[in-house]
Design a protein around this nucleic acid. Sequence first.
DNA 1: GGGTCGATTAGC
DNA 2: CTAATCGACCCT
Length: 193
Amino acid sequence: MRLPVSFYARPALTVARELLGTHLILEEGGWRRVGRIVETEAYVGEHDLACHAAKGRTPRTEVLFGPPGRAYVYLIYGMYHCFNVVTDVEGVASAVLVRAVEPVEGLPEEARTDGPGRLCRALGLTLAHNRWDLQDPALHLAPGEPVPEAQVERGPRIGVDYAGAWALEPYRLWVRGSQHVSRPPSRRRRERP
DNA sequence: GGGTCGATTAGC
DNA sequence: CTAATCGACCCT
């Protein structure tokens, strides 16, 4: 059972909420690995200064402008990958970053899946998966046990301080109490009041 | 062709 | 606190 295109064809914030509890599944080379999504971030469009699409249409961001239900994977800091699902209708450049999953199947006991870079490393997600259609059996998402509203926590997105007021929007969502939600980097000391 | 920077992480 | 490490992007 796969999440249909209609699942992704909604506003990024809605998709970010509904993605909690769903399963991210990769099956390549006879190796099946599954993670339960417990943390997401919504990037809501070109007007969202934290969204890569705010830079406009470029070879990298093109996939964000395309149809929903595709993977957007990019390389960050030259060594880590981040996995997103493209959301909303074609022409609206929005996506949801998957920031953490709980190991469900096919992962080493010691594998860490908290944090966007770590989960990609654990699951084997790379630039090779960029722009993949998430209806592909080799890389898709599937429904899981729904996460009740009382278990959903929200807060500002991580690492987007450059986005001004947009950095304050509570577009990061996670499952309360999950031991696999990423721990935000220790905040830098702010100016003293 | 060159310089800057990043939706991060690990290590000192 | 900072190095690592490289593709994208924005110059000249």
